[in-house]
Design a protein around this nucleic acid. Sequence first.
DNA 1: ATTGAATGAGACACTCACGTCTCATCCGGG
DNA 2: CCCGGATGAGACGTGAGTGTCTCATTCAAT
Lengths: 183, 183
Amino acid sequence: MAVDRERVLTEAAALLARRATTSMDEIARAAGISRATLHRHFAGREALIRALEEHGIERFAQAMDAARLDDGDAAAALRRLVREAEPVAGVLAFLFTENELFESGPVNAGWARLDARLAALFRRGQEEGDFRVDLSTAWLTEAFYGLLGAGAWAAHEGRVARHDLNHSIAELLLGGIRRSMEK
Amino acid sequence: MAVDRERVLTEAAALLARRATTSMDEIARAAGISRATLHRHFAGREALIRALEEHGIERFAQAMDAARLDDGDAAAALRRLVREAEPVAGVLAFLFTENELFESGPVNAGWARLDARLAALFRRGQEEGDFRVDLSTAWLTEAFYGLLGAGAWAAHEGRVARHDLNHSIAELLLGGIRRSMEK
DNA sequence: ATTGAATGAGACACTCACGTCTCATCCGGG
DNA sequence: CCCGGATGAGACGTGAGTGTCTCATTCAAT
């Protein structure tokens, strides 16, 4: 009978990503529990958002681990990361655009760590001569989040088929719009 | 003495993009007017958001006109569009992520028109053989908004220099991360 | 100087979501 | 069977934001 914390957080992320003002009652309903129980598990709205942040960070870190960012060439690692991160894209997109988090309280240290790992991947690609160096790793990091979020949203709206998502995101990120001469 | 409607909308977009729950009072203050005056010019919060939508659509349409999307090759047109749209990126990012707009009431017809023009540009690039065809025009359209928004946000946060923004966005979109053999 | 429109400041009632609480019910383990 | 923890339903007070109103002031045009 224990509340499915995972489900609550997933539902909350899905709702809040679409509308930041979603009420606690709506979140509770979506998670299949009562508002009272929701409050029993999360001290309040603030606490829920924070838990969501923790959850997203943890899941994304797991995705990074699973993608083995240090193995093989950087491009392949990036492809794996997109694939692994796709299930978390919704939560990530919410956190990425939810700037409320950055205004009150200190930014979660976990974020910086994830950003650093991502930037390190891009830097490795640059050092190996495979990635272009006229785009900063900071920008590539931001762009990664942006495209992941756009992809999640597009899939949610049905504008992009979900089974194309990995390919769409990874290929656009790696190769851009133009047809390339190289393989 | 007439209220600077343009300024009100600009300030409102900047604030609302950062925090969707920004109060009317805060918006009024930021725009340098009183809450009473704000209500005199916009019937209510809802009306303000709608006006913001209209404003963003109009400004982006102007950017498209200025970019002359039908002239020259598609890649050059896209570069011009990024340059022209950059000042509106903040407003656009807000509208793009503010899904409240899509839930209540009909989607503004202007959006569909803008999407269509953008998709047409990508289609033209594909037909001319310059753009890859394994990415749908719908996805490219979404990705364009996503990257533009990420760029605006990154610049706002100081993670990307503003004078690099055009180059960063346009080049990543067109060429991707990998170094290309072709010029 | 006078007039009228526009604004600022503030009061007011209203709504809505929040957080807390109580009580009844359910369900599983002993 | 009984018991205790967890849940659902709902009431309640609170606070914040909204929308409307009034009144005094400012400012530009005449």
